[in-house]
Structure formats: C-alpha cells, structure tokens
Amino acid sequence: MIIGFDVICLCLILLCAILALYIKDLMGAVIVFGAYSFLMCIVWACNAAIDVAFTEAAVGAGVGTVFLVSTVYSTTRVDSFKKNRFITQLLMFFVVCIVGSLLLLTVTDLPEWGDGNAPANAHLSSYYLENSIDDTHVPNVVTSVLADYRGFDTMLETCVVFIAFIAIFAILRVRKSRTNNDETSKIFELLVPSYQKVDSVIIKTASHLMIPFMQLFALYVVAHGHYSPGGGFQGGVILGASLILLAISYDFKKSLNYLSEKKVILLVALGVLIYAGIGVICLFLGGNFLDYSVLSKILPATDSIMARSHAMLGVEIGVALTVMVSMYGIYLCLSSNGRFDKGL
C-alpha cells in the first residue's frame, strides 16, 4: 500500500466533498459529487477492497450520478431563493463539532490503519478467510460471505433494491390516460423543462457497438464472481447501465420495446423470487432457510459443498436480475418524471 498516494487521494476527496456542498449550481455539484465517488473508489481499491470499489464505481458513481443528473434535469439546476440561514448553520456547526470531537476522541482507541491483527480483522474475518475454501469451494471470500455465510443479509439487500424500485414507481408513476384531461397535468407539463431532441448518429452508433460488449462483460462479472471480483450486484448494475445507455442514446420507446413497463415489474419481483425461492427450496428439502448444502439432494452429481457453490451462482443471478431491472426502472421513472415518455 502506498500511504502517500492514499493520503493525497483522501485530501482530494475532502476537497471534492466540500466543493460538492459549496457549488451553487446543482449540476456542477452533482458532477463534483461523481468525481468524489470515483476518488473514493480509488481509495477503496488501494485498501484491497476491490469488490467494494467495483460496486461503488458502478452503483455510487455511475448509476447514482445518473439518477442525480436526471433529477436535476427534471426539476431545476438553479436555486435562486435566498434566505439567511446563518444561525441554523452555525448551530448545526456546533452540533457537528461536538459529535466530531467525540469521534476524534475515539480515534486514539482505534487500531492503527492497516493493522492486520486488530480485533476487527481477527475474529470473524479470519474464520471466513481460512475456511471459505473448505466450506464452499469458493476462492473469492467476498462472494462466499456475501451469498452464503451472510446470505440472508444479501437477500434483504436485494429486497431493498426491489423496494426502492416499487417505491419510486409508486411515487412517481403517472399514467397519461388518467391525467390527460386534467388541468393540473398541463401545468405539470409546463413545469418540466423541454428536452432538445438530439439525434446524434455518433452517440447512437457508439452505444450500439458498446451495449453488447457491456452486457457480455456484465454476464462475465456475474458468472465469474466466485473466482474474481464481481458478482450479482456489480454485474446487475452494468447490465442496468447498458439498458440506461440504450434509453439515453435512443429514446424510451426503443428501450421500452425491449423491456416494457409490465416486464420490468415482473422481472424485478422475479429476481428476488429466485433468491428467496432457493432459500425456500432448502426449507422444503429439510434444511434451514438458505442452507444450500441440502440442495445436493436434487442437484445431479454434486456433494453438499459444491451445492453451496452452485446455489451461490443461482442467487447471484437473482440479484443481478433484480438490480439490473430496477436500476433501469428507477432511471425511467426519475428521468421522465414518472411519465415514461421521454428522458435525458
């Protein structure tokens, strides 16, 4: 680990964070925030958290920024209202200072940065590292912990993605047929800035070329999660990003031809269902929920350890499906203000 590099990165991150809060123009703030996220990825990668860095690059910096940009586009990028908030800000500054100094006080108690024998690195994590191969035959310990040891967490996490999609869909979706005659919808139309339809051949062709490779790569990330960094979340987000790219470079009509609204809802649920379904099958086979080892009873030519490995692939596929479709669905909702007609 190059301490110096880390320190520089961390200082840059701090700078970006301050800038993101300081810049008045929302679009600028969002972009700086994207940079902040990418710098964060680098720090994490330096700290050997390659899966986290991967996820942050795809989810936090990538899709997250797209969401932010969509929102800024659908609302407004300038905030002209001025009111002196100095008192509040000062008060909050003191509150934050108190909390912060308390946190700084605890720093002395914390182990040094990179101390391999710190308690946090000893108890559970050493067990995972030393037993993952024997227990599950999966060399990527992150995957085995994610999908097996703490599989229940991951199922709920998939659920969170599902919830986010359903929630955003329920909040934002407005059906044209219902609002057409409505007076308010006309005002609503006026509020949303009009989009200039850019019909760029270059972008279209480039994305046309890119999308298949993106998707192929994403499938590789999903499938090869056992042996290399990656897995359902990362792969799912990349798949989702490819669909988002499609929607951005062409229009909603084309992307909705591939994946209609109805299909989106079904597939999001299906992804979680695959995950939970595997757990329930384990239940029916006499094991505990998500106890993949009992799947060896129905999977041909696998012992109980390989069954775990195979089942992990299954749940990763479920995760990928949910994440892909919900990222796409959330993008559709956010960028079109819930009307599903035209986006960024």
């Binding site: 996820t55 996490e157 979340f233």
Partner: peptide, 25 residues
Amino acid sequence: ANPLTQILMLTAIVVGVATLGLGLA
C-alpha cells in the same frame, strides 16, 4: 484483506443508492 467489512459495505452502498433514488423521487 478483511472480507467481512467489504461485504457489509457492499450492502451499505446498495442501500445508500436505494435511499438516494427514493429521496430523488
């Protein structure tokens, strides 16, 4: 490196983006 903190944070990132999306909506 410690895998445990990493997978916890994978979860946290996803939860974070879900919250962000909902907040944006």
